[in-house]
Design a protein around this nucleic acid. Structure first.
Length: 258
DNA sequence: CCGGATGTTCACCT
DNA sequence: GAGGTGAACATCCG
């Protein structure tokens, strides 16, 4: 997916629909409707409603509607939000360049605007009143204290950062980039971090998200070009370690990440 | 041809 | 309960 940065771009690009009434609902894929939400319900509830504002919690995009309901959009790994027929994030590595209309899993028409979720692999989804409370603090807003609390676990540091109920928004690329910059070993038990290390991680995470947001996305990290077998640490030239941590392929520098 | 890829959920173990 | 693993989703790429 889109990790938190891409979803933030989606949120911004979709601002254009605020205040406009929904005129039509496209929900051709029942499987894409999650958590008890059905195409029939969406087509009954949504027409006529207006978006009051757009929100986001981690990777979950939220349309707060004037009918007291909230529509949640998830993008999985390959989902894209298309606004007014134009993809808002062009360089989504694992999405095909051109979007096939057959991959439109959900869409809303507004007066003078439209949204489409194009998702080849169908890993995303749409849900009315999604359980936002199950997500941890948003990675772009989390405090040091909240981060420290999220790391009170024996699981690997990386696993907790990927756990959306602990911290919402971090994905595989952002976690590897952040831990590489912070000099922290992804496999360390989360709760083994000292208060100083938590402070460093917090500062580094904020700086990393800010920088990569400015650069244009999760794939613009300094580590990105070396995320392959035989890759070298951009900082010290050491061959990178490649292993599974928290169930995901993980690149880290054995020399400067501890 | 095969493996793996910015993700989440669930079943099934330990 | 916590944590780990593998499957499922479906397409593209090296």
């Amino acid at each position: 997916m889109p990790e938190i940065l891409e979803v933030e771009f989606y949120r911004r690009s979709a601002e254009t629909v605020v205040g406009r009434p929904i005129t039509a609902v496209h929900a051709p894929d029942r499987w894409f409707c999650k958590g008890g939400t059905t195409p029939e319900e969406l087509k009954t509830v949504l027409p006529g409603a207006r978006a009051l504002e757009l929100g986001r919690r981690g990777k979950l995009l939220l349309l707060h509607l004037d009918i007291g309901r909230t529509l949640g959009l998830r993008f999985g790994m390959t989902g894209r939000l298309i606004v007014d027929g134009q993809a808002s994030v062009d360089e989504l590595e694992y999405s095909p360049r051109r979007s096939d209309p057959a991959w439109d899993r959900f869409g809303l028409d507004f007066e003078g605007a439209m949204l489409r979720v194009s998702d080849p692999r169908r890993l995303g989804g749409v849900q009315l009143d999604p359980p936002v409370e199950r997500l941890g603090p948003d990675a772009l807003a989390i405090s040091r204290t909240e981060l420290a609390k999220a790391l009170q676990a024996s699981a690997p540091l990386k696993a907790k950062l990927l756990d959306q109920t602990a911290v919402a928004g971090m994905g595989n690329l952002l976690v590897d980039e952040t831990l590489w910059r912070a000099g922290l070993d992804p496999a360390r038990p989360a709760r083994s971090l000292t208060p100083d290390e938590v402070a460093t991680l917090h500062k580094t995470m904020r700086q990393t998200l800010k920088t990569l947001l400015r650069r244009g996305g999760s794939h613009t990290g300094d580590l990105q070009d070396q995320r392959h077998r035989g890759g070298l640490c951009p900082r010290d030239g050491t061959p990178l370690s490649r292993r599974q941590v928290g169930g995901r392929t993980t690149y880290s520098c054995p020399r400067h990440q501890h």
